[in-house]
Nucleic acid binder design. Structure first.
Lengths: 232, 232
DNA sequence: TCATATGTTAACGATAGGTTAAATTAATTA
DNA sequence: TAATTAATTTAACCTATCGTTAACATATGA
């Protein structure tokens, strides 16, 4: 139930990055470390984080640019900037772009921990109340991913299990398009191995059974790639 | 609806306090200035604020003590500390006690503005729950959460216990929608662990018993997520 | 054709929830 | 202040739900 919180840490100084990652690990966070903005964005798209800690000055893609891209995908994710410079314009730019906090290096690691806690706490309510997209319509189905309800025409709704629910949502987010295996595995199962993969296949079968009332909806396999929900 | 946000500013240095108040006023906030912790607490009880900005070092009652008292009344209100000293222990103490941010004097006023904005943005959603609504009608029930009265049709009303009352209110604020376990636990029980969770289940059972006279009202469980009161 | 990927079902263990009653704590009242 | 009552927590026992895994079947592509 109380999973560890996942942090994306983007820091180009490898020594500092690794030390900080280990420190956060020791304090019960799951940390993914990326060593530049490019890599940071790739990791961000691939996994699902609760908070991002970004260095401002990095080669290829600086922290500000990265935040812009991140916020396009998820505008609610909290951001903490780390920076060596403390120019007023930079600080303001950071806040303007949607940062939640700003730490000047060198900073005290305990302070960082508390800032993380404070921010996650603040964000907890809004994530609990989570107002975004839960309602999907496809063919003759109505699907509410918040209530985990699937309804066909005027039938009574069926209840979906959490995994069924997430998987269906993910398929629908890629409706008529490939939903890569890997994506569902890393997002829903948070691990990509033989067993999670088989587990996912079981859930695909369960979903197919739920959807078979409607001949216009199919979940097709794309061998070695993933699945595709075709509809409408 | 789009009222100005109200700030409680507690600052013992009168010159600085007035300047800061005026600055915030100019930036479209309603500010109440108190010149020490005592007065701050009086003002806090008297009015309703969106955010508190507190000096740490003050005569009579310091910022930490004041926060303790404030959080007893409203644990969700965001707090920003202002301080001249930047001792690590003080900063940590601030966060531990529930501060949302910490500004070291002298600070840049624009930075303060952005911090306020960032924090209010995060807290926006929680205001959904800060309703003073206390009369509810659902199906054949009338419920007054101020009096803790629940009435079915023309029957005499039943009196609910404080916890029953809060839980029912919370369910009704989310009528026909998910009321997350975590939300009730953090807001009513102020803690989220095995025992509070079981305690909540007991209260759900009590409420179900109260509501069972009416076949059109149900409290459904959404496994692992929370409860949903369906009605009307 | 053979290794690998996927389809499907069923069984099992783990955890969440339903409910009642006893035990504990808090609030009232004598 | 002691006695009484109300409110809440904890324990106990039971059921429902969920996810994983094993087992066996079929499909795919080199």
């Amino acid at each position: 139930m109380n999973d560890k919180k996942r942090i994306l840490l983007v820091e180009d100084d490898p020594n500092f990055g690794i030390i900080l990652r280990d420190f956060l690990n020791m304090n019960d966070y799951d940390v993914v470390l990326a060593k530049n903005g490019m890599e940071g964005f790739e990791k961000f798209k691939k996994y699902d984080f609760h908070i991002c800690i970004l260095d401002v000055m990095m080669p290829y893609k600086d922290g500000f640019t990265l935040v812009g891209e991140i916020k396009e995908i998820n505008q609610d994710i909290p951001i903490i900037f780390l920076t060596a410079k403390s120019l007023k314009e930079d600080v303001l730019k950071g806040y303007k772009i949607g940062a939640d906090d700003y730490l000047k290096k060198p900073f005290d690691s305990d302070v960082l921990l508390y800032k993380i806690k404070a921010i996650l706490k603040r964000n907890k309510l809004s994530s609990i109340l989570d107002t975004d997209e839960h309602e999907f319509k496809f063919s003759s189905f109505e699907f509410n991913s918040k209530l985990r309800h699937l309804k066909f025409k005027d039938n009574k709704h069926t209840k979906l299990s959490p995994k069924e629910n997430m998987l269906l949502k993910m398929l629908l987010l890629h409706k008529n398009d490939l939903m890569p295996r890997e994506l569902a595995l890393t997002r829903i199962w948070r691990d990509d191995n033989y067993f999670t993969s088989r587990s996912m296949d079981v859930y695909i079968a369960k979903l197919r059974k739920q959807l078979e009332i409607d001949p216009n909806v199919k979940i097709n396999n794309i061998h070695g790639e993933g699945f595709r929900l075709v509809s409408d």
